[in-house]
Amino acid sequence: MSKELVEYVVKSLVDDPESVVVTEVEGQSSVVLEVSVNTNDMGRLIGKKGRVINAIRTLTQVQGARLGKRISVEVV
């Protein structure tokens, strides 16, 4: 499941894993994963020029392709 994947990755990246919340909004052919973290960890989640969040998206896209679904990851 993409949700568990994103949860694991994000929790391993931040200083405050307790505050990590990932919610899944499932549509017909798409899944939206909304990630929220402690404000202090925003930089770690997004990364310079969005490099971290984009790398996370690369992983979920690979998984999405296998499941035949578009998986998007949004920071909230």
């Binding site: 990755v9 391993s12 990246l13 931040v14 200083d15 770690r44 490099r51 971290v52 984009n54 790398a55 996370i56 690369t58 992983l59």
Partner: peptide, 14 residues
């Protein structure tokens, strides 16, 4: 490249 980048961050954080 992305996988290595993320994995390094995760291990580095730990």
């Amino acid at each position: 490249i992305d996988l290595q980048f993320l994995a390094r961050l995760m291990v580095g954080q730990q």
